[in-house]
Design a protein around this nucleic acid. Structure first.
Lengths: 216, 216
DNA sequence: TCAAGCATACCAACCGGTATGGATGTTTGT
DNA sequence: ACAAACATCCATACCGGTTGGTATGCTTGA
C-alpha cells in the first residue's frame, strides 16, 4: 500500500522536507537531528535508519532543493523551440516571482549550506558546486542559443555571463537577508535583465512587459 | 606598559582576531569558544571577562572585519579630489587583488555570518546590515560624484548600482567557495567593471590598464 | 592596597550517534 | 490459502563527548 501508515519513501521525504525548512530558518549547524525528527513527526530511529549520519541528510537536502529548483524553472526552460531570449526573460520573471512572495523570504538552501560548510565538508562543498553548475549551465545554454540566433551587439562568453548572473542572484539573496525587505533583489534583477538585453538588439515585437508576477 | 605581559586591549584584540580566523574557516556555530581561546593563547576566563557571551564577540568580529575592510579600501577612497571613476576602478583593482592572493581564499566574514545568523540573531543581522551599508554607501557616493562630473550615457541610480555591485561581490565569493579556483571572481569583476564603465563615455586619457594585481 | 585582568575547575544542557526491541509488510513453504 | 519466517521500518532508551557559561580565587599593574 502506497498510502499506508508506513512507507519508507514517504518518511524519508518528510525528513528531508523538514530539514530543508529548518535549515532555511536556522542554518545547518543550528538545526539538530532531533529538531528535524520532531518537525517531520518521527523519531531518531527513523532518521538513522534512512541516513547514516547528519551529513548524509545534508547531501539529500541539497539534491532535493536542486530538483525543486529545476522543476521551478521548468516553465521557462522546457520549450526547446522557444526564443532563447524570451526564455531568459521568463527565467528572470520566475526569479522575480520568487522574490515577490509576501511574507516568504527569498533564500537558497544550497547557498546557505555552501557558505556554512564549504571549507569543512568537502563532500557537501562538491555537491553544492555541482548543483550550482546545473543552474548555470541551463542559463549558459540559453545565452549560447541566443548568441547563435541573433548576432549579438558585442562579444560575450555565455558561461561567464551565466556565472555572473548566478552571482548576482546569490549575492542579492544574501544581502537581502540583512534587510527587512526584498526590493534590493528586485532592483538587482532589473539590472541583470538590462545587462542580458544589452548584448542584443532590442526586439521590435515584444514591448518589454517590465516586471511581472507581483503580489498575487 | 603597552607591551607588557598583561594588556586588556591586546587580549581582546587577540580574541577577536582568533575568532575571525576560525570563523572564516569553520563558520560561526562550528567555532567553539574554547577553540577561539586556544587560538588566541588565553583561557575562557579571559574570554568571558571581555565578552558577556559568544554573540557579543560575534558583534565585535563584525565591527573588526568592517574596520579592516574600510582601511583595506582606503587607498581607493581617501583622495577627495581624485576622479571618481578612477576611484571606482581602483576599488575594483583592490578587489581583484584580494581575489588574486595565492593560497588565500577570497571570502567575507560578514557575508558568512549574515548567511548563517541573519534569521536567528536579530542583533547580528542588524550589525551585518549596517556594515554592508558602509561599503555600499562609499561606492554609491563615488557613482554619484561620477554622475555629476561627467554626464552619464544613460540614467542610473547610484545607490541601486552600488547594491548591485555589492551583490556581485558577495555572490562571487559565495559561488567560488564551491570551486577550487577563484577565476570566477575575477571574471565577474571584469564584467562588473565593464558594467560601471558602460554608464559613461570612454575616457581618452587612461588606456584602461586591464587586470592588475595578478600573481605577486 | 585594591580593582582589573585572567587562570582553573566545574557544570547543566545538548549534541550526534548507538543498542535494542517491537511493529509491519513481504516472501516462502506447504 | 495460510501461517511461518524474514527483512524492512521505526520507536524507546541510552551514552560519551562537547557546548556555552559560571564560580572562585590567584596575579598583575597602578
Amino acid at each position: 500500500m502506497l498510502d499506508g501508515k508506513r512507507d519508507a519513501l514517504v518518511t524519508r521525504e518528510k525528513l528531508v522536507v523538514a530539514a530543508v525548512s529548518l535549515i532555511l530558518r536556522h542554518g545547518y549547524h543550528a538545526t539538530g537531528v532531533e529538531a528535524i525528527c520532531a518537525e517531520a513527526g518521527v523519531t531518531k530511529g527513523a532518521f538513522f535508519h534512512h541516513f547514516q549520519n547528519k551529513d548524509e541528510l545534508g547531501l539529500a537536502v541539497i539534491q532535493w532543493w536542486s530538483a525543486m529548483g529545476t522543476s521551478f524553472y521548468s516553465k521557462a526552460w522546457a520549450d526547446e523551440t522557444a526564443d532563447p531570449l524570451d526564455q531568459l526573460d521568463a527565467t528572470l520573471d520566475i526569479m522575480e516571482g520568487f522574490a515577490s512572495r509576501p511574507d516568504e523570504p527569498c533564500i537558497c538552501c544550497i547557498g546557505m549550506m555552501a557558505q556554512e560548510l564549504a571549507t569543512t565538508h568537502p563532500e557537501i562543498r562538491a555537491s553544492c558546486g555541482r548543483e550550482f553548475e546545473v543552474w548555470t549551465r541551463n542559463i549558459a545554454a540559453l545565452l549560447q542559443k541566443a548568441k547563435e540566433r541573433r548576432k549579438p551587439l558585442r562579444e560575450f562568453d555565455p558561461e561567464q555571463v551565466a556565472w555572473f548572473l548566478h552571482s548576482i542572484w546569490q549575492g542579492s539573496m544574501l544581502l537581502a537577508k540583512t534587510r527587512g525587505e526584498q526590493t534590493l533583489i528586485l532592483n538587482n534583477l532589473k539590472q541583470a535583465r538590462a545587462y542580458v538585453h544589452s548584448f542584443f538588439r532590442a526586439k521590435p515585437s515584444a514591448p518589454h512587459r517590465g516586471t511581472k508576477a507581483q503580489r498575487r
